[in-house]
Nucleic acid binder design. Structure first.
Length: 270
DNA sequence: AAATTCTCCTGAAGGC
DNA sequence: TGCCTTCAGGAGAATT
């Protein structure tokens, strides 16, 4: 599923094809995503020029002088630059047609969403509630330590809370906690300042490492083929339940935390 | 206020 | 081969 590194990689892949381009047509074949695609989307976006493409958390923003299209990929969404003669498939819900190329939104499970933002503000209720970007200076160990005093929620659920930090999903929460040597089910309020400093650095590092790999495994944005890789080869715990820990060779534990699959090493993570 | 549960959806995988 | 069940999960809304 697209997490922050995948969204960032998609952004870098599609931006060069979009910036400065005029939208000639918009086709909405399925408007029932997580929330309805705005009725006015085609009318308002057609004829506009895409001035910039930005990311906030896992949202992409396509900016025009008439406002911005805000896109979330949910867990099965993808954006691809295709030749406009390639016929849409079953789950290709929205096409944004440029000069000869089309930005195609596909989302089999339809957990994704699109909103229209009025010009200037880049403000939306869903954006305004988000916590700091993980790469920002605001996000650090001191911040995590400060907001977690007396909180008993599991630290993994804490860092997956988008109001705490934006864009950390299940894969990288598992991976960051393994790197930091912290049990995912440890109460957030029972973690020292120094361990939070380590955790914040591990979150930044695991995300930036994944973005670097995204450059190699997610590089094809033009063609209709190929599923994005999920960086399997560099994952230490996610998807490796009951396999051996890469450090101590003991079997990795699998538990559920907040309906999410959670994998960790009982020995390396305390 | 904080924490937990519910909800949307369909493809993949496993059992029989 | 094919049908059925189970699971996966982002994250806001609803509920406790």
């Amino acid at each position: 599923m697209p997490e922050l590194p995948e969204v960032e990689t998609i952004l870098r892949g599609i931006s060069p094809h979009l910036i400065g381009q005029k939208v000639h047509a918009v086709h909405v074949r399925q408007s029932r995503l997580r929330w309805p695609v705005p009725d006015k989307l085609a009318q308002i976006l057609t004829g506009q020029t895409i001035d910039a493409v930005k990311r906030r958390a896992k949202y992409l923003l396509l900016r025009t002088s008439a406002g911005s299209l805000m896109i979330h990929l949910g867990m099965s969404g993808s954006l691809r630059i295709v030749n406009d003669e390639i016929p849409p498939g079953k789950h290709d819900h929205v096409d944004i047609c440029l000069d000869g190329l089309t930005l195609r939104f596909r989302d089999p499970r339809r957990f994704g969403s699109m909103f229209w933002l009025d010009p200037g503000s880049d403000s939306h209720p869903l954006l305004d509630k988000l916590g700091p970007e993980p790469f920002s200076g605001m996000f650090n160990g001191e911040y995590l330590y400060r907001i977690t005093r007396k909180r008993r929620v599991a630290v993994k659920q804490l860092i997956m809370n988008s109001q705490v930090v934006a864009g950390v999903g299940n894969i990288y929460a598992n991976e960051a906690l393994f790197r930091a040597g912290i049990r995912p089910d440890r109460a957030a309020g029972r973690i020292s300042r120094i361990r939070y400093e380590n955790l914040a650095e591990c979150i930044k590092k695991v995300l930036s490492d994944a973005i670097k790999q995204g450059g190699t495994t997610l590089r094809d944005f033009s063609g209709g083929h190929g599923q994005p890789g999920y960086f399997q080869q560099s994952l230490n715990v996610y998807g490796r339940g009951n396999q051996t820990c890469v450090v101590c060779l003991r079997p990795l534990k699998v538990i559920r935390l907040g309906q999410r699959s959670t994998v960790f090493c009982n020995r390396c993570q305390t």
